[in-house]
Design a protein around this nucleic acid. Structure first.
Lengths: 120, 120
DNA sequence: TGGATACGCAACCATTAGGTTGCATTTATA
DNA sequence: TATAAATGCAACCTAATGGTTGCGTATCCA
């Protein structure tokens, strides 16, 4: 069993849900796209081109920050947001785990059907 | 450019957000865990062991179904829910894309810094 | 130093989400 | 054919979300 198993089958499952939830919004996915493809950007920079106000963008950035997907740092009068890839990597591992579970389930089903076919 | 590019850089981005949102809830992740690791199950089966009512579970299952993560089919008096791996695979591809974007960004930054160092 | 720029904070609003209870309906079965 | 089991439907409640506006504060710069 891999070293990641504790975080999957423990009493309380890992907090993947908040990260998924943070990605469950079109506006936030647009912010993610900008930040993972370029340098850190200020709130104003991230607002230009958006259809909503700066305050709305700020709220979305805080949601992303709470999920750990971005980090913020004040620089003079502006606060710059930067992408952090680690939560995304965690999600990828989790989704790989789900896919693997499913593959194993299909394998078990196939074996079972073959056994049944031989048995009856 | 890969054949998936249209769905990423088109006028309107693909609807990854609803799938992420559907996974952004602990109860639904538990349902996902049960369904991706076993045969199709009825609502009652999926409710036993849960801390919420059958109605709540039903609502969660409908959310997962709207996102395409599960399918339902009536079988006699019960409706069985089955895992569908395709939306999850899509998310994995999307997250791979994000990671790749980030890696390229880091490469560009590194190159830029090296250039700057040579320049000045 | 005074105006423009970039933010933060707070109040407020409408909608959605997650959850419950109650009751009707369909289906299997003793 | 009653009865139990499995579900659907609807109303209702509370809290969280996504959005706005208004205003105060910090910071850069001519």
């Amino acid at each position: 069993m891999s070293r990641r198993s504790r975080s999957r089958i423990g009493a309380r499952p890992p907090a993947h849900a908040p990260v998924f939830a943070a990605l469950g919004d079109e506006t936030r996915l647009e912010l993610l796209a900008k930040l993972c493809a370029g340098q850190p950007r200020s709130i104003s920079q991230l607002t230009t081109g958006s259809r909503v106000t700066r305050q709305a963008i700020t709220k979305h950035l805080r949601v992303l920050e709470s999920a750990g997907i971005v980090r913020s740092a004040r620089a003079g009068r502006e606060s710059r947001f930067e992408f952090d890839p680690r939560p995304i990597e965690n999600l990828k591992h989790y989704l790989d785990f789900v896919s693997r579970q499913w593959d194993e389930t299909l394998d078990r089903l196939k074996t079972f059907v073959e056994q049944e076919g031989r048995g009856s």
